[in-house]
Design a protein around this nucleic acid. Structure first.
Lengths: 207, 207
DNA sequence: GTCTATAAAGGGATAGAC
DNA sequence: GTCTATCCCTTTATAGAC
């Protein structure tokens, strides 16, 4: 397991193609991505793309599946733990915004592609185990019954939290424009949201 | 101003083309849209598209500019009125969700296209007068100073409200899947959000 | 103004040499 | 495995008849 073997895995042509395809597909979507651009970015030519992945469809499928396959378990883990509700909410918002900060194109990629090619996505790409918020919802109901939080519809609460975490990242350019922020200020603003969203949610839940 | 003249405006070939292009571009984006499909949907042939609009780019630009030009003033009007804060928030959420319900593809269209072609959008499409939330922000600060609402960062409040209104619509398929709703149930759920989001926000603002 | 036919460009895929 | 050259289908755009 010397350098040679590691290199075969990490810097292999197949991996370079996959990484390049990942970048391009995630930023431009299936329709906007061009095989030529992927080849250029990988530093090889179009023919090699077809050598490793038979077609554009296959390459796209590999990328899309990897994106979903990476995102889904992280979210499941967050939601399905057995921590107390407040801690879970704090933790969820913190981690969720951190992940998106590091992968800012992923949410829009998933949403756009599901909207444009829903059948393809739900049949071929989505793994069986997309995170389900049932446990979280039951937990909210228990807290309400015990009078520890204000009565709210738990499904709407879930959507509210996810909306506030995700939307600002996919609407970044508009947010910059509307709030009059430069690039650095926007970065700070998005980081602040960890605290701001958490406080906003917990304040709304107080009985 | 008999039928003939009205028809020249509303049912003119140019208008039919524009309407068809609007549908297709908004649903599929610049890259996904095909001139053939637009021609078919307008009930004419491809050559006529080029007769009225010189190129696909030009046609897209016309559509995009119209979409933005229609959306921006509605939002400005909502934000810049001089109603009391609580009433403004209630009104904003109500109207905003209603508009999006009727035009479910518009938000994702705007967001996707800005992300894919940011230069193009900010140079050519965006009108000078995109809604600015300054008035709303000042209003929030006054309410905080008077002790009538809990201290919150007003910029984050704006983003929170918009996020909760818009995001569920652009993430519809995922919401359906995650919450286990069928098409009819989702429609009810989204309608419920007018009340749910309003309550959620106002509860969070109580001192 | 509207059509048919066709040119021209773009982009995915393959053949075959090395 | 990797490259060059090329094929061929799709899609945009134009020419020219009516």
């Amino acid at each position: 397991m010397a350098k040679k073997e590691n290199q075969n895995i990490a810097d292999s042509t197949e991996q370079k193609i996959f990484d390049a395809a990942h970048e391009v597909f995630v930023q431009k979507g299936m329709d906007g991505a061009k095989m030529q651009e992927i080849a250029d970015r990988a530093g090889i030519n179009k023919a090699l793309l077809h050598y490793y992945y038979r077609s554009k469809d296959k390459l796209y499928e590999a990328v899309a599946r990897a994106v979903i396959g990476r995102a889904a378990p992280m979210i499941s883990q967050l939601i399905e733990s057995d921590k107390p509700l407040e801690e879970k909410i704090r933790h969820f918002i913190e981690i969720y915004i951190s992940i998106i900060s590091k992968n800012p194109f992923i949410p829009l990629f998933i949403i756009s592609e599901i909207n444009k090619h829903p059948d393809h996505f739900f049949e071929k790409i989505l793994p069986a185990e997309l995170p389900k918020p049932q446990i979280f919802i039951r937990q909210v109901e228990e807290e309400i019954a015990a009078g520890r939080i204000r009565p709210v519809n738990p499904k709407h609460l879930v959507i509210n939290i996810v909306s506030m975490c995700v939307f600002p990242f996919i609407a970044k350019p508009m947010a910059r424009f509307a709030l009059g922020l430069n690039s650095a200020e926007l970065k700070i603003f998005l980081e602040e949201r960890k605290v701001q969203v958490t406080e906003f949610v917990l304040a709304s839940l107080r009985p």
